[in-house]
């Protein structure tokens, strides 16, 4: 079977060059070529907003997703986006979101199923940072500034810090920062390089701003999933942990490379200023109640409190595991044992 995979991002994106290019050969080899993949990237098949329904309709057999595009269809699943600032440990977040959604959040799986889509795990990006023209070491430095926000939890933090939230498309970010339309861009350090922000900024503040965690790496059309043999489905579940870790690590590698090169481009690295860290911790403490309220009022999620507790427990668990494991193989094996081995190929997603 050849599965058509759609993605709206360019091939230079970690989900493709690290995630898919690890996953596709691994599955093809393990199924002895019974399952192969045809990737259509760059949005030639489906754009970001239309992907969820298009995938359910069978326009593609599999695709990357961004939950934030579809809050009405996936209210519970995208709850984790509102908790993005809780942890900056990318690998732990990816594993925790994946385990939470697959095993601890029945409403999440029901939501995907209602869209005729099978969820198989999420990646996470590198930690977000504040990229700006002047150093930022406390909330006082950010008050009154215009900050380009990625949305969700970050919107709330920026507003509470007394700054102005600005939403622009990522293509406009460089121009906006250069011309002073925004003062700060909230992005992983990698954006210094990928969006050439180091030409227009001279400071980056690294801190506990969290990671983007709402990207299912590769979800499938339910009918296409059902037509595969159970053995092949088993292989596809088994190889997923590796793809998730590879994608997330690629984000971290890009990030580290950009950070290392930053000083050459005249960008000062401000590492976790103590005052700002305290202020973020205080925000996170209060923020849970705001998330619960937003989940119930805006998204209509029931029992948000216990779901959030379940997620935070898993986050703590995986933070522990990632500090113990010595290699990528160990982490992948642990994710497989704790998460994917618990899914049955004769039952899950059917």
């Amino acid at each position: 079977t050849e599965l058509t995979i759609s993605s709206w991002v360019a091939p230079s994106h970690p989900t493709i060059f690290a995630g898919y290019e690890t996953y596709f050969p691994a599955v093809e080899e393990a199924t002895k070529g019974e399952v192969s993949f045809k990737l259509v990237s760059g949005g030639a098949l489906l754009g970001g907003k239309e992907t969820l329904t298009g995938l359910g309709d069978g326009v593609a057999d599999g695709s990357v997703l961004a939950l934030t595009y579809n809050p009405a269809q996936l209210p519970t699943s995208q709850l984790v986006a509102e908790l993005a600032m809780l942890s900056g440990n990318s690998l732990a977040v990816a594993a925790a979101v994946t385990e939470f959604t697959l095993l601890n959040c029945q409403p999440c799986i029901t939501e995907f199923s209602a869209q005729n889509v099978v969820y198989t795990g999420s990646y996470a990006t590198a930690p977000y940072a504040l990229i700006s023209k002047g150093d930022i070491t406390s909330l006082a430095d950010i008050a009154g500034k215009r900050v380009r926000s990625p949305g969700g939890a970050w919107d709330r933090w920026i507003t509470e810090s007394g700054a102005t939230v600005v939403h622009t498309s990522s293509s406009e970010m460089y121009e906006a920062l250069d011309k002073g339309m925004i003062d700060v861009a909230m992005q992983p350090a990698a954006a210094l390089k990928s969006h050439s922000l180091w030409d227009v900024a001279n400071s980056i503040t690294l801190g506990s701003f969290g990671v983007y965690n709402s990207g299912p790496l590769l979800s499938f059309n339910k009918d296409a999933w059902g037509e595969l043999t159970p053995e092949n489905r088993r292989v596809m579940l088994d190889k997923m942990a590796l793809a998730i870790v590879a994608t997330t690590e690629a984000y971290l590698t890009q990030n580290a490379a950009a950070k290392a090169e930053a000083p050459e481009h005249g960008v000062t690295l401000v590492e976790k200023p103590a005052k700002l860290e305290e202020e973020i911790a205080a925000f996170n403490g209060q923020d849970i109640s705001a998330v619960i309220e937003k989940a119930e009022n805006v998204y209509g999620v029931k029992d948000a409190k216990s779901l959030i507790e379940s997620y935070t427990q898993l986050l703590a668990k995986w933070q522990g595991i990632t500090s113990e494991v010595a290699s990528r193989e160990e982490l992948v094996a642990r994710m497989k044992a704790d998460i994917f081995d618990k899914l049955s190929e004769t039952d899950y997603g059917l």
Binding site: P71, A72, V165, V298
Partner: peptide, 9 residues
């Protein structure tokens, strides 16, 4: 039916 919406600010 799904009451589709999107969350910006």
């Amino acid at each position: 039916r799904q009451g589709e919406f999107i969350v910006g600010m």
